[in-house]
């Protein structure tokens, strides 16, 4: 297996976006790309990352391999790469290590690191293609700010989607808060658009703690998609055009 990115910055951001939620995980490498699927320790949230082979500078995977890696260790290794350095990952069949090589574009500096692989028993969940009741596309910075703001007031947020707006509400010991975002078009700046596709109105409650973990992916993507159906986990997708995506799933809280 050998994969090369032109710039380390995307991979750094991917690892930063998921490492605090899942810790150790397995990267599944096939000839179509690298992916991981992992739940957090409480089995409430799930991360699914796909990095498509087309998004790499060069990519080769002769035999499918699953590489168990501590994401904190991977983050440490990637700290040694400059944002504009190229990154090459190499793994040979049956080897218990993965190699990282970072090269500056003027080629005057090359650094190499070897990371020990881990045996990880991953429990994969089958996630069926779902027709969601409501899909909201919005700037990822708006979601990050909304979740951070409301976290000051409560632990949970109720997200309610109607035809032309989406409302985030919370309450806690010191008071209550809500943020309403209305659909708005923008032909010249599509990344600032708020688009709501509603088949059925939805209202779901989620733990803000996890949403705040998810919005660590905001530096990867200007836009985010919230896909919701009543009594179903939320899917939060950060698309990375031509590269792949990060999707997070979060189980709702239900009233007893």
């Amino acid at each position: 297996f050998e994969a090369k990115w032109d710039h380390a910055s995307t991979l750094k951001k991917v690892i930063d976006a998921v490492k605090d939620l899942i810790g150790d995980t397995s990267w599944d490498c096939t000839n179509t790309g690298m992916s991981l699927q992992s739940m957090d320790s409480s089995h409430v949230a799930l991360v699914h990352v796909l990095l498509k082979s087309e998004g790499f500078e060069s990519y080769r995977c002769d035999r499918n391999v699953s590489m168990g890696i501590s994401l904190n260790s991977m983050a440490k290794v990637l700290k040694c790469a400059g944002n504009d350095d190229s990154v090459t990952l190499r793994h040979e069949s049956e080897s218990s290590v993965v190699n990282f090589a970072f090269e500056s574009h003027k080629e005057e500096r090359v650094s190499e690191f070897e990371l020990k692989l881990m045996n990880i028993d991953t429990e994969h969940l089958g996630i069926p293609e779902t027709e969601y009741d409501s899909i909201i596309k919005m700037p990822s910075a708006d979601l990050r700010r909304t979740c951070a703001d409301l976290s000051q007031f409560g632990d949970s947020v109720t997200i309610s989607c109607a035809k032309s707006d989406v409302r985030f509400e919370t309450s806690g010991d010191i008071g209550t808060g809500n943020v309403r975002l209305s659909a708005r078009g923008s032909s010249d700046k599509p990344e600032t658009e708020i688009a709501i596709e509603m088949i059925n109105p939805v209202s779901l409650t989620f733990a803000l703690k996890y949403l705040n973990f998810f919005t660590k992916a905001a530096p990867l993507s200007d836009t985010v998609k919230l896909c919701m159906s009543n009594n179903h986990p939320l899917c939060v997708e950060f698309p990375m055009p031509e590269v792949g995506y990060i999707r997070y799933y979060l189980a709702p809280k239900i009233d007893e």
């Binding site: 089995h43 994969h124 089958g126 996630i127 949970s156 799933y249 189980a251 239900i254």
Partner: peptide, 14 residues
Amino acid sequence: QETQTRLESYFTVQ
């Protein structure tokens, strides 16, 4: 009273 559900209640373990 809100209860946090787990993902296995919605998705099947493979």
